[in-house]
Design a protein around this nucleic acid. Structure first.
Lengths: 200, 200
DNA sequence: GCCTACATGTAAATAGTTACATGATTGA
DNA sequence: TCAATCATGTAACTATTTACATGTAGGC
C-alpha cells in the first residue's frame, strides 16, 4: 500500500522524502499515515528495485535533499499495484480501497467499473453477514447490537455511493463509444482478472 | 487490541483457542479478524503473565483441547485495556473504537460517557480536516474530491449516532441518581484520565 | 476412502511504529 | 538566541499474516 502511495504521488511530480510525507498525510492522512521510519526505507527499496530514481541530490544552500522521480518501470509497477490482481482483502478493507481510489484518475473507465463492482459486492456481503449475525444469535448485548445496526446503515450508505459512481462510469463508457445500441445489462461474465490499463 | 478481545470473550465463558477464534470472527470479524498464528502465541503470552489460566486440558475422546479461563488479574488487565489511559489513536481509528465498544457493557455509564465524548471529538476534528483540505487546495481530482465529500457525510452520520448514545448515557446517569437538579451542561473540565470502572 | 471441520502450534516474512541520532535554516 | 520547521536516516520493537506441519473425527 505504501509503495502504491509513493509511486502515485511521484507521478504528479518529483519529490523528496519530507515533502512526500507531507503530501501523504495531507492527502491520504484521513484514512492513513506513514512515519519516516517506514517511508525512507521504502524509498530506498523502491530505488534499489529501479521503480524510482534520484532526480537530484542537492546541497542547495547547504541543505541536502534527495529528490526522487518515478521511472518507466515504476510506472508499470504502479499500474500493476493499482489494478492488477487486486486481492479481495484490498477491496473489502475500506482504508485500502480509499487509497486505491485516490488514484482512480489513472485508470480506464472499464477498470474502474470492475473495481467498483467488486467493492460493492464486498459491501453487500458484509451487510448480509451483519444481518445473519443479528438474526441467528444469542447476543443480546445492547452496545453490540446497536453497533451492528449502525454498521449496516453505513454500509448501505456506502453501497448507494458506489452505485452512483458505477452509473457514472457506465455513462462515460456509453458516451465515449457514441451511444451504442447499449444493453444496460451487465456482461455478467466470468470474473475476469482486471488488467492494468495505461494512463489516461 | 488482541489481548482486549481475548480477555473480553473469556469473561463470558472459558474457551479453547479454536472456539475463541470462531467467536472472535463471528462477533468482531466484521471490523477485524485474527489468524491462529496470532491467536495461539497471544494466549500463551497471556497465560505466562497470569491473565488467563488453563481451566482444563482434555483428551476427551482422544481430541485434545486446551480450555482457558480468565483470572482475577486478567479481569483487572481487561478493565485497564478497556478504559484506562486509552490512547487517542484508539479512539480515532474506527475499527479499534468498535472493538472497544463491543465490551462497553462492562463499563460504568460515566466511563462510557467520557469515551464517547472523546470519540466524538476525534470525528469532529476529522471533519474539520476534510473541510480544510477541500478548501485550501489545488487538488481538483474528481475521485479524490468525491471520496472526501462522501467521507464527510459518513463522519457526520457517525457523529449523530455517537451523540444519541451520549444522550442515552446521560439519561441513564440522571435516572440512577434520581432526577438530580441536573444541569445539562457538560462539566467541561480538564480532560481527566479515564479510570477503569468495575464491572456492571 | 475422502473431504470437511476440528484442534494446536511454529517459523519466517511483512508492515509498520517509536525512539533515537544528527544537523541546518528561518523567523520572532 | 531560541524555538519551530526542514531534512534524513537507523535500530529495536510491535503486531500481525502466511505458510507450513501434524493429527483426529464424523459424515457421505
Amino acid at each position: 500500500m505504501l509503495d502504491l502511495a509513493i509511486l502515485g504521488l511521484l507521478k504528479e511530480k518529483p519529490m523528496h522524502g519530507y515533502e512526500l510525507k507531507k503530501r501523504l498525510s495531507y492527502m491520504l492522512g484521513h484514512f492513513w499515515s506513514v512515519s519516516y521510519g517506514s517511508l525512507y526505507p521504502a524509498m530506498k527499496r523502491l530505488e534499489k528495485s529501479g521503480s524510482i530514481e534520484r532526480a537530484y541530490s542537492v546541497k542547495e544552500k547547504t541543505r541536502h535533499r534527495n529528490v526522487y522521480r518515478i521511472t518507466p518501470k515504476g510506472d508499470g509497477d504502479f499500474m500493476t499495484l493499482l489494478a492488477d490482481k487486486v486481492p479481495v482483502d484490498s477491496l473489502a478493507n475500506t482504508d485500502k480501497f480509499d487509497i486505491r481510489m485516490a488514484f482512480f484518475q489513472y485508470l480506464e473507465p472499464e477498470t474502474r467499473l470492475v473495481l467498483l463492482e467488486r467493492r460493492r459486492a464486498c459491501l453487500e456481503e458484509q451487510v448480509d453477514k451483519f444481518k445473519a449475525y443479528r438474526k441467528s444469535n444469542g447476543d443480546t448485548d445492547r452496545y453490540r447490537t446497536g453497533l451492528l445496526r449502525h454498521k449496516v446503515d453505513l454500509a448501505r450508505s456506502d453501497i448507494r455511493w458506489i452505485s452512483r459512481l458505477i452509473d457514472q462510469e457506465r455513462e462515460t463508457i456509453r458516451k465515449r463509444d457514441g451511444v451504442s445500441p447499449g444493453r444496460d445489462v451487465e456482461p455478467e461474465g466470468k470474473e475476469e482478472q482486471v488488467t492494468a490499463a495505461s494512463s489516461a
